[in-house]
Design a protein around this nucleic acid. Structure first.
Lengths: 208, 208
DNA sequence: AGCATAAGTTTCCTAAAGGAAACTTTATCC
DNA sequence: GGATAAAGTTTCCTTTAGGAAACTTATGCT
């Protein structure tokens, strides 16, 4: 494989960029809006028709001459098909701070229990949106757990090796083999058991 | 594997709970705000002092008698120490009922391109926090792409089969083989190339 | 209970947002 | 280049948001 990169210029491994909760911030909403409109290739007139706001009003908002009411913002978001948080969220650090963390096979942080053995991946980065794990499933039946597992967020699970039964509160158990995956709400009770001889290996990722 | 389902009591497969992009939606901002204020144990007067908005104004907003300007919303968010998206995001379906979606091996939705072949998993559920994919990497070098791939959110990637080079804007390329994984900010330019003879297979999950 | 006091609502005024049309700027065609 | 049309801005007027104070409703307290 070709290695196309003189590595002297790269920063060291992990840039743990943080965004402190700053004070009052003007928040250039107008500029933002204009960018969005332009990106759709719309004129003020067209945007006006889509949103139901007057051309003049849009102009003023874009030029930060007025502060739109929430009502207006809803019309905007609705008309331009972008959701409100997206439109009005903080400037969203444009300086695409690159964070990166590599975890070599078998080199995550392990947390063994009697039923599972979790290997947490990407341990170097904090404030992640997702938590990735590799887990060995030792449990062989529902009874190996006391009760349903239940917590906030959503979970994605892929079977890497072996075969498991996926139990969940509102559904019947389902058998998953290598390559199969599930996506589910983690606050619905759930639980895993290995079916095959050897312990099964799965990848799972959570996000709240 | 056995077919999974005597389906008498269980709901049918996927509860595609949907919140279709509805029309204009009132979006009970007032109610929301009131809850937040109460949860902090604040009176209107106290909230008034923290936000700099008049007691009367707060009352009217809470009772949906007026639609606050963006300016006012900023003061609110700022004074109450809650961020804007959180305050004004859609109602966030509280009834986090159990959703579940199983994707059998090879049965996702595929989107072939010259460089990748993406198989989107868990296609039944919408409004997910994460998007899981399985992808075959056809690209063999940086030049197979026009430019860096760059988009919002964070990404987690695990090599399922084969060997790849992971290129990224701020780091030197790194070689990943089966079982290795990376977690990174997706707005940092990135790109993948297969190293091995056969195309590599990876799992990746994005979240914004 | 009845008086206090604090929390919340309504009124009334003024300051600012939203819309229609006049005006200015920018692009396009001859 | 000048005429014409389209995009964008500003003006002027109407509607609505925001604030101060009056009013109403809940919560003590002896």
């Amino acid at each position: 494989m070709d290695d196309d990169s003189p590595q002297d210029i790269y920063p060291s491994m992990t840039i743990t960029s943080e965004q402190s909760s700053e004070k009052i911030e003007p928040l250039k909403l107008g500029k933002r809006l204009k960018e969005i409109r332009k990106s759709f290739g719309l004129t003020l007139e067209e945007a006006s028709q889509k949103t139901g706001l007057a051309r003049s009003t849009l102009s003023k908002i874009e030029n930060e001459q007025i502060s739109p009411t929430f009502q207006a913002m809803q019309k905007l978001a609705n008309g331009l098909q972008v959701d409100i948080p997206q439109l009005f969220a903080p400037p969203k650090q444009v300086t695409a701070t690159g964070r990166r963390d590599i975890t070599r096979s078998e080199e995550g942080k392990t947390h063994p229990t009697s039923t599972y053995e979790h290997e947490l991946l990407a341990t170097q980065l904090t404030n992640k949106k997702m938590m990735p794990f590799k887990s060995t499933i030792r449990a062989r039946s529902f009874d190996d757990y006391g009760d349903w597992i239940r917590h906030d967020g959503e979970e994605f699970l892929l079977v890497l090796k072996g075969e498991i039964n996926f139990f969940s509160e509102f559904y019947e158990p389902v058998n998953l083999s290598e390559g199969d995956s599930v996506y589910y709400d983690a606050n619905m009770g759930h639980m895993l058991a290995s079916v095959s001889e050897e312990d099964a290996l799965i990848l799972w990722v959570t996000a709240s």
